[in-house]
Design a protein around this nucleic acid. Structure first.
Length: 786
DNA sequence: TACTATCCTCTTTTT
DNA sequence: GAGGATAGTA
């Protein structure tokens, strides 16, 4: 036990990185990247090569060894989760008590922060609203209707898509007009223009605007650009392969003089081209920054050899790559397994029963297991099976908490209190709960607002003052406006949670939900309680934060951000959501043509990105990877029959076996070692801090795995040596005093030997103390020492 | 104006 | 299969 405490303490130390030679933990290329200080650098970091470690260590290195102030470093990621994790790790490395002073955040929140400061320079107010895609869709829809465009001819979704794609490339309506030629397509230009007008009028930004407006500010106002560039003399970017044009422009504007831009990425994991990501940003980095240092991280610390070589084999078919060769010190481990099922239900059943087997009989914790699929729609079948068999699971992604109807309603009220000119929120709640303001009244207000180019709030006030409201809604509108005014007046004084309470009681929202015994209403009420609790929690965490801060956090939180691997549950998610994560055992479902790769990519011949996605899925697995498919499945509302995925044929044949051959040793070895790393021992080493405990366990597991692998490698090496050294024993060599090895019984010493016919009868004392009588011809003994 | 029933379309991935 | 739009009814 004492030994384990000692071991755990050592692991803790590793993990807390409080050793003096804190950089010793890095391998040579990692170290090179971490200690690269001035000038641009491009770090090509293969899957599982310690990318996050490099980024966090480099930030820490700049602070600890180069005297750079934490707030002078900007580290950009794509998800809040990645930012959060990085912030914690850096804070630990530099012993920073207030990690808030570190500028580690997503592109979107970084830019939102800049815009709040620079509001007046970009034509916004400091409490502008951030619209998510739902809000955006609503705006586009109203715009389409207002312009009198037939939404059967022009789909609002399509228009929204074009607007976003244009903004990512810094193209305005007129550019779109030039690119899209047909008369029919010119409607998009009108929609785009009108959309921008509504957004400007509402003092609102969509996701793309956040970045776009920053870049426009920096490009149009050199003073502002230089101020911000001076604030962040060191810039790091994670997942650089996922940056789009406008994001590149942002980085380029900030780094123009100091050029301290260190980007980390992997072209093989570029899976967001549909969101404008330009893989060329990575591939051409050295054309834009010719003096950039190129560093490759090619050692994989995550996967068994077989998983890694299967994945590498797949990705080698791609042409759009710089090329790299990942290698691992880990042993081969088991091959990949394939589940072939008749139907999607059978497929899911087989997956779930394998999961139970892994967990119940081999001790693999649920949180080390994940199920991936190409599209969200595929999750249903597994979820059903999981519930049926009582396997705890968590669906990552899917609908965000903040996207639930009642939550959106209440947040809209809060947004209106912060900024009553937000027409999007106004439309959402003007008649929720019902207050008799019907479609007719709303249309009238909208029409007048559009004509005068002013917001609904302003228009409503005018109409109320001039007594021009439609009869039905007159009184309620007056009341509603009154409420808005009082909330607005109190925003500065009230905390977000008290404001929410006020809104709930003033509007009677909860009562209006209806019968409190209806299941649906019960869940809605629960959600509202959860919202209240989460705001209170948030206020405790960020003491001086304002309502705007809260609303910004909510808008920029994604469905995958609240993912928490410590929950004792299997993780279910799309392959996209899986990027950056790792699990002992990964199940990848729906390996069928038209599913993965999906139909669109086959039709468009854009298979490289699908293949990268497949590569990402495979490289998440540490010990075991199970693929599954079904001959027929229920998809898109009807039965379909699919051929096995073409990607299955791209796997090396010798690396994939039927699931019935499954060898659980890969995980049970891991689990055995893990069992020795008892949680209570780790707890003793780290105290009661839950995060430390989880981090400690994870790092202890990693250490356990490393030791296990080391043992396996070592045993193999010795076995090889023995094979070379040992000669097959001739019978004449078998005489008393000679040490021999028996394939089953181990090492022993010959006590006596006598000829028996043409064989030799031996008595051998083995190391475990047993004495055996053996016949030399059958025993296949090998002489170790004569 | 409010509520319900039925039909239609669209489903890749998400900050 | 689910959400949204539309039409019909109270």
């Amino acid at each position: 036990m004492l030994l384990w405490v000692a071991l755990c303490c050592r692991i803790m130390n590793d993990w807390l990185d409080i050793m003096n030679d804190w950089l010793d933990i890095l391998n040579p290329p990692q170290r090179e990247a971490v200690t690269h200080v001035d000038g641009p650098a491009l770090v090509i970091a293969g899957a599982g090569s310690g990318k996050t470690r490099v980024i966090t260590y480099r930030v820490a290195y700049l602070v600890r060894e180069c005297g750079v102030a934490p707030w002078n470093i900007l580290a950009v990621t794509f998800t809040n989760k990645a930012a959060e994790e990085m912030r914690e790790r850096v804070a630990r490395l530099i012993g920073e008590k207030t990690p808030g002073r570190l500028s580690i955040s997503t592109f979107h929140s970084t830019c939102a922060g800049v815009l709040r400061r620079e509001a007046t320079r970009v034509g916004l107010t400091a409490n502008f609203t951030i619209c998510d895609e739902h809000d955006q869709h609503a705006v586009v829809k109203t715009v389409v209707r207002e312009l009198g465009i037939d939404d059967k001819e022009i789909k609002p979704r399509q228009a929204q898509w074009i607007i976003n794609q244009a903004k990512m490339r810094m193209l305005g309506p007129s550019d779109v007009g030039r690119i899209l030629q047909s008369k029919h397509e010119q409607e998009y230009v009108r929609i785009f223009e009108a959309y921008n007008k509504v957004m400007a009028r509402s003092d609102a930004c969509d996701f793309e605007d956040l970045i776009l407006k920053c870049v426009e500010l920096f490009q149009g106002n050199d003073e502002a650009r230089q101020e911000w560039a001076a604030r962040w003399p060191y810039i790091m970017v994670d997942e650089y392969q996922d940056t789009n044009f406008v994001q590149y422009q942002l980085l380029a504007a900030l780094a123009r003089e100091h050029r301290n831009l260190c980007v980390v990425g992997d072209e093989d994991q570029s899976i967001y081209s549909w969101r404008g990501a330009e893989i060329s940003n990575l591939l051409d980095f050295r054309e834009n920054f010719p003096e950039a240092r190129l560093i490759r991280l090619e050692q994989n610390y995550r996967s068994h050899g077989n998983i890694l070589s299967a994945a590498s084999h797949v990705i080698e078919r791609n042409r759009e790559r710089l090329g790299k060769t990942l290698w691992t010190e880990r042993p081969d481990g088991p091959p990949l397994y394939l589940i072939r099922a008749r139907t999607d239900r059978d497929e899911a059943g087989e997956v779930v029963s394998r999961i139970q087997e892994l967990h119940d009989s081999h001790g693999l914790p649920y949180h080390e297991i994940a199920v991936f699929f190409r599209a969200n729609a595929l999750s249903r079948v597994v979820e059903d099976r999981m519930r049926e068999w009582s396997v705890p699971y968590r669906m990552i992604g899917g609908i965000r908490f903040y996207d639930r109807m009642e939550i959106k309603d209440l947040l809209s009220y809060m947004k209106l209190a912060a900024n009553p000119n937000n027409d999007i929120s106004m439309l959402r709640v003007i008649n929720t709960p019902r207050r008799g303001i019907g479609q007719k009244s709303i249309d009238a207000v909208l029409e007048e607002a559009g004509a005068k180019n002013q917001t609904m709030f302003v228009t409503l006030k005018q109409m109320a003052a001039e007594n021009r409201l439609p009869r039905g809604g007159k009184k309620s509108v007056a009341e509603f406006l009154g409420l808005l005014e009082t909330w607005r007046a109190d925003v500065g004084k009230l905390s977000p949670s008290t404001l929410l309470e006020r809104i709930l009681s003033d509007t009677g929202y909860i009562e209006a939900l209806g019968d409190e015994n209806a299941i649906e209403v019960v869940t809605r009420r629960e959600n509202i309680d959860e919202l209240k609790a989460s705001i209170v929690q948030w206020e405790k965490e960020y003491l001086n934060a304002t309502l705007d801060d809260y609303l910004e956090m909510v808008s920029l939180t994604s469905a995958t951000d609240d993912f928490d691997q410590k929950a004792g549950a299997v993780s279910l998610m799309t392959v996209h959501a899986a990027k950056g994560l790792e699990f002992s055992c990964v199940f990848l479902m729906g390996m069928d043509n038209e599913i993965f790769p999906n139909r669109r990519s086959i039709e468009e011949g854009s298979l490289e990105e699908e293949r990268r996605l497949f590569y990402v899925a495979l490289t998440r697995a540490k010990d075991m990877c199970v693929l599954s498919r079904a001959d027929s499945r229920f998809y898109n509302g009807r039965q379909s029959w699919n051929q096995p995925s073409m990607f299955l044929r791209e796997l090396p044949r010798e690396k994939i076996e039927d699931v019935d051959e499954m060898d659980y040793n890969a995980v049970s070895d891991f689990c055995a070692v893990r069992r020795q790393l008892r949680e209570d021992v780790v707890r003793e080493a780290v105290g009661d801090d839950e995060d430390l405990l989880i981090g400690g366990m994870k790092s202890a597991e990693r250490e356990a795995q490393r030791r296990l692998d080391e043992r396996i490698i070592d045993a193999r090496r010795r076995a090889r040596q023995r094979r070379d050294e040992e000669k097959t024993a001739g019978t004449d060599e078998l005489r008393p005093g000679v040490r021999v090895r028996h394939p089953l019984l181990g090492v022993g010493e010959i006590l006596s030997a006598e000829n028996a016919g043409d064989d030799r009868k031996l008595s051998v004392l083995f190391e475990d103390g047993s004495e055996e009588t053996l016949y030399a011809r059958f025993a296949r003994l090998k002489v170790i020492e004569a």
